[in-house]
Design a protein around this nucleic acid. Structure first.
Lengths: 230, 230
DNA sequence: CGACGGTTGGTTGTATGCAATGCGGTGCAC
DNA sequence: GTGCACCGCATTGCATACAACCAACCGTCG
C-alpha cells in the first residue's frame, strides 16, 4: 500500500483525505468535488481520483445516486457490527497466539505494558488520544504475534472505523488503568498458553470497552448517527 | 462499488481483470503494463489505472520494488490464514443468525437447499464450478440473515481469495452430497435457535472442507505456491 | 397557473500529452 | 576481456483538454 520509494501525490491525498474522513472532519452531506479537492491538495484531478477510488474501495466514501462521492456516515448499526466482528477476530488472535504465538514478540509486549503500568503508578498518566494509539498498537501486536497477516490487516481496517468511538473509552483515568490491567492479564495468559482463558479475558476486555463506549457516547451520538443514517 | 446506472470503463476493466486475477489466468511473474492493458481492453490508460488502484487496495495486485504492479501470488500461508479467519467469521454468523436471524431468509435458504437435495437424489448432479457458486451463496446468505453487513463484505472478500482453492472441494459427487447435508443441518439448527450447536456444525463443516481441499490440492499446489512465495 | 422542454453550468468519465525515473544495452577506456 | 559511463527506451506519475451526462433553472405554451 505504501509506495516503496517516493510517496506519490495520490498516496498523500489518500492518507490525508482518509485521516480527515476518519476524524469526521468533513461535512457529511457534502459531495466531494474532485476539482475542489485537487485545489485543496495543490495537485490535479488525476491523483485525487485515484485516492477517491481507493477510499471508495475501503468504504470510507460512498456514491450518491447521481454518481458523486460523499463521506460514508457511520451508523449505530455498523458500529455494533464492527465491534461484533472485531470481538471474533480478537478472540481468534489470542487463541492462535496462545498456541503458536511468537514468544519473543509476546514477551516484548508484556515488557512494554509493564513499563506503561509503572509509568502510570509513578504518576505519569496518559490521556485519551495518545492512549488510543497505545491500545490499538497492543491489539495489533497481539495479532501480529499470532502470525496471521490477513487478520492483522482486517483488524487495522476495523480499528480505523471504530477509532472515532474508541477515544471515548479513555476519558477517565480509571479506564486507562483498567485497560492496562486487562492487557497485562491477557498477554500473561497467552504466554502461559491457555487459549481458552486468554480468549475469555480478551472477550471480557473488548466487551467491557464496548459497554463503556456505548454508555459514554450515549444517546447523543446515537441520535446524531440515527439522523444521518441513510 | 457497482456504479448505479451506467457501468464505466473503469468498472469493466476492474471486474474483468479481477476475474482473471482470481482465476489465476495471468502469469505470475509478469508485470501488468498499463498501456498494454489499455490496448487489451480497448480503452485508455486512465480507466486502467483506476482499476489497478482498486485491485491494489483489494490486495489482488502488489507492487514490485520498481513500482510496477504484478498479480498477487497466493501463498500456502495466506490460504491457511484466510481459512482461519473465515472459520471465525462463519461461526460468528451462525451464532448471530441463531439468536436474532431473519427467519424468513433462513427458511428460504432451507427451502432452496432442500430443493437442491431433491434435484441431486433425482439424479441431477452438480459439477464443480457451478456448485462453488451455490456454496458461496449459502454462506453469504447465512451472513446476510445474521444481519451483519460488515461481516458479509469481509466474507465476500475472503471468498474471492479462496475461490481458487474451493473448486477442489467439489470434484467428487460425495463431497457435493456431504456439503448439501451439512448445509441443511446447519440451517435447521440455526432455525432451532441453538447457537452453540450451529456454531459447532459450521466449524466442523468448514474444517472438513479445508481438510479436503488441503488433501486434494496436495503437495503439488503447495510446492507451486512455495516457489512463487516472495 | 402549471407542466413541459430547452438550455446552461457544473461534475464526472475518458483520452492524451509531457516530464521524470529506472533499467538495459552499447560503446569506450583501461 | 572487463568494467564503467552514457544514452535511449519503456513505463509510470501527473496534468490538462475534451466529451458525456445530470440537474436545476428559466422560458414558453397549454
Amino acid at each position: 500500500m505504501t509506495r516503496s520509494a517516493r510517496p506519490s501525490q495520490a498516496d498523500r491525498v489518500y492518507s490525508e483525505l482518509r485521516a480527515k474522513l476518519l476524524r469526521g472532519d468533513l461535512p457529511i452531506g457534502q459531495r466531494l468535488i474532485e476539482q475542489q479537492l485537487a485545489a485543496d491538495f495543490a495537485t490535479s484531478r488525476t491523483p485525487v481520483r485515484e485516492a477517491l477510488r481507493r477510499l471508495e474501495g475501503d468504504g470510507h466514501v460512498v456514491r450518491d445516486p447521481a454518481g458523486g462521492l460523499c463521506p460514508a456516515v457511520p451508523s449505530v448499526r455498523s458500529m455494533r457490527e464492527l465491534y461484533d466482528v472485531r470481538l471474533a477476530l480478537e478472540e481468534l488472535m489470542v487463541r492462535r497466539a496462545s498456541v503458536s504465538g511468537d514468544r519473543g514478540e509476546l514477551e516484548a509486549i508484556l515488557q512494554d505494558w509493564r513499563a506503561l503500568e509503572a509509568e502510570r503508578s509513578g504518576g505519569r498518566s496518559h490521556h485519551g488520544p495518545e492512549f488510543v494509539h497505545q491500545d490499538e498498537s497492543f491489539h495489533e501486536r497481539i495479532a501480529r504475534a499470532a502470525g496471521n497477516d490477513v487478520a492483522v490487516r482486517m483488524l487495522r481496517d476495523l480499528n480505523d472505523r471504530i477509532r472515532i468511538l474508541r477515544v471515548h473509552d479513555f476519558t477517565s483515568d480509571d479506564r486507562v488503568g483498567a485497560t492496562i490491567a486487562d492487557h497485562l492479564e491477557i498477554v500473561r495468559t497467552v504466554l502461559e498458553g491457555d487459549a481458552d482463558a486468554a480468549a475469555a479475558f480478551m472477550r471480557a476486555h473488548v466487551q467491557r470497552s464496548a459497554l463503556v463506549v456505548r454508555e459514554r457516547v450515549g444517546e447523543a451520538l446515537a441520535r446524531m448517527f440515527e439522523v444521518s443514517e441513510s
